[in-house]
Design a protein around this nucleic acid. Structure first.
Lengths: 125, 125
DNA sequence: CGGTATCCAAATAGATACTG
DNA sequence: CAGTATCTATTTGGATACCG
């Protein structure tokens, strides 16, 4: 019988493919920034470009299409002159904000740790 | 004071570079899977390879080095014969788990939504 | 303004072979 | 077992030009 389960070493990773697939939502260097820029409300294409300085129109356009297709954001075109387009997070998209925030928190502490290390290295001789 | 605050259109994106930098912790296709596989306790190199099926030794090795350097995990070498190495999340690394989990939750609902769409499309004629 | 098309550069990943 | 080295393939991003 397969009852000789080890207390650790559990060969029980819950679908790594699922994780990979979910992570692909925010894949690419810029998707998280797009979501982040939209967290406070709708933004237009050129506003997003200013929010996220070195992003090219092509990449921004590509990311926006993908995120729209996945249901993370909505695109709203106004046929004014000049034309105007607004992008806005869906409720589901908004749920990604806390997750991104969590990662930023960890990143922040990581930097503090590294500063502390440097600090100690400098004072220990 | 700067009271003429616009209710939206706020030109106030909190350091997109910071977000980008933090996100780079989990950059690459496999880093999240590595962290995920370690969430239940220490794992050895070959165990991680089995956990995350199609990962090559080179990529796993690269990711592990990066994550170790950043302080997300610890490497513990046992000079036994044959040699054995264990990888383990640091406390900071463990803090990434809830964030990853949040993303997975959203991904999961996204899939449900898409199934619902398909379902409706099939029944509406 | 809000994109798309094309071409090119850089980063990431995979396959294979080899080492301690 | 636990990697590293090398080479190549794929993906991603950037620059520029151009269109509605």
């Amino acid at each position: 019988m397969a009852l000789k389960m080890r207390h650790n070493r559990s060969p029980n990773p819950p679908q790594p493919c699922m994780l990979t697939e979910c992570m692909s939502i925010i894949a690419g260097a810029w998707a998280p920034n797009v979501i982040w820029s939209l967290r406070a409300g709708p933004r237009r294409f050129s506003e997003l470009r200013s929010d996220i300085p070195p992003i090219s129109a092509k990449v921004l356009s590509t990311r926006l299409s993908e995120l729209e297709k996945r249901g993370i954001l909505l695109r709203h075109v106004r046929r004014t002159s000049p034309p105007s387009t607004e992008y806005e997070l869906t409720p589901l998209g908004e749920e990604l904000i806390p997750a991104l925030d969590g990662i930023v928190q960890v990143g922040h502490r990581l930097k503090q740790l590294q500063s502390a290390d440097t600090d100690l290295a400098g004072t220990s001789t």
